[in-house]
Amino acid sequence: MRLRTPLSDKDVRALKVGDTATIDGVIVTGRDEVHLRALELAREGRKLPVDLTGAALFHAGPIMRKEGNGWKAIAAGPTTSSRMNSMEPEFIERFGIRAVIGKGGMSQPTIDAMSKFGCAYLAFTGGAAIQGAEGIREVKGVEWLDLGMPEAMWILEVKGFGPLTVAIDAHGNSLYKRVDEEVKANLAKVRRSLGI
């Protein structure tokens, strides 16, 4: 499936757990510090430098190289999404993002927010940074570079970015929850084989 940003509620609701997708359009990076600062600004009633409505948020801290007046993406894989667990539900609600690209999955409050506001979690292979950089056609800009290269907000024009696996859909389904259940069912056997 080929997704194109900005994403609509309908686009996102059509996604089902287990689907494979790629993204064309604009994605914006944001991890710990971007979440903290963006939410702080929003709570004070101030605007973000970028409109995130319908955007795909990429949990990533890329390696960028300065080239002339611009930047080139050297390596850009996903970071561990669970660090943003406590902030993501409010981020989804306030800024209207429609997709989160990351790795490792997110907790129940985020799954609930995704289902309520129409957003999906797209898993990208952790460490697949060259593959990620190859999908980035242009670094359109950077905000909050004072946070340092990994923590800044990078605005990226992408084409065929992925492959991504729909791991949490907008209907409350999570691939990670399914795996958790399977792991729980396997536990007795695992413990037996360890003699514990």
């Binding site: 287990g18 494979t20 990533a60 801290g61 890329p62 390696i63 050297i74 390596a75 850009a76 894989g77 970071t79 292979t125 952790g126 460490g127 697949a128 940074a129 060259i130 593959q131 990620g132 950089a133 190859e134 990994p150 492959p163 696996t165 691939l175």
Partner: peptide, 26 residues
């Protein structure tokens, strides 16, 4: 899904070595 993850990893490692660039941004 599992095979796809490992294929992505292997393709990514090969590309990193070919381009002499970091395989992971971290």
């Amino acid at each position: 899904i599992a095979r796809q993850q490992l294929r992505n990893i292997l393709a990514n490692v090969a590309a990193a070595e070919r381009l002499s660039l970091p395989m992971c941004q971290d």
